[in-house]
Amino acid sequence: MTDIDKLEALAKAAGGETWSTETGRGTFDGMYVWYEDGDSVCRVFSNLGHMPEPVLEEELAEYIAAVNPASITALIAEVRRMRALLDNRPALNAGLVEAYMQWTACVYESDGSAMAKETQQ
């Protein structure tokens, strides 16, 4: 399982909220991922060598930019929300088993009584 606390700390330490991609600015060549303030997050290279399929540096840069601190912290918040729902599920469903048993008993009783009437006729 992923350590979401560590992942959250890393996202916050990475800086910025959202990142963008753009080819080099000024004297910079190539594809970069940028902070909102214009500083570069990283230079992206597509020559990964070990990949069986070519990876375009634009696509790789878009992916890196999408996995920004704001996205990661939003995903972590969703994971925590879903875990809380699952943790509270037994309390929400406590009476459902008994209600289901009563419902199925009523269904079978009504089916049985209908069948009994049919066989008597």
Rank of each mutant, 00 (worst) to 15 (best):
M1G: 15
M1S: 12
T2F: 06
K6Y: 07
K6A: 10
E8A: 14
E8M: 04
E8I: 02
A9M: 06
L10Q: 11
K12C: 03
A13C: 05
A14V: 01
T18M: 05
T18I: 00
S20D: 09
T21P: 03
T23V: 08
T23L: 06
R25A: 03
G26P: 03
G30M: 05
M31D: 00
M31L: 07
Y32T: 00
V33W: 02
W34Q: 01
E36P: 09
D37S: 07
D37Q: 07
G38P: 06
D39Q: 13
S40N: 14
C42W: 03
R43H: 11
R43K: 15
V44G: 02
F45N: 15
F45Y: 13
F45E: 13
F45A: 15
H50F: 14
M51V: 14
E53Q: 14
E58H: 15
E58M: 10
E58K: 15
E59S: 12
L60R: 12
A61Y: 03
A61L: 06
A61H: 03
I64Q: 03
A66F: 15
A66H: 14
N68T: 03
N68C: 14
N68I: 03
P69I: 00
S71N: 13
I72C: 04
A74N: 12
L75N: 07
L75V: 06
A77Q: 09
E78N: 07
R81N: 11
M82W: 01
M82D: 08
L85I: 06
L85N: 06
L86M: 13
L86S: 09
N88M: 06
N93M: 09
N93V: 07
A94M: 08
G95V: 05
L96A: 08
M101N: 10
M101I: 13
W103R: 12
W103F: 11
T104M: 10
T104V: 15
A105R: 08
C106L: 13
S110V: 05
S110P: 01
S110I: 06
A114I: 04
K117S: 11
K117C: 03
E118N: 08
T119Q: 11
Q121G: 10
Q121Y: 13
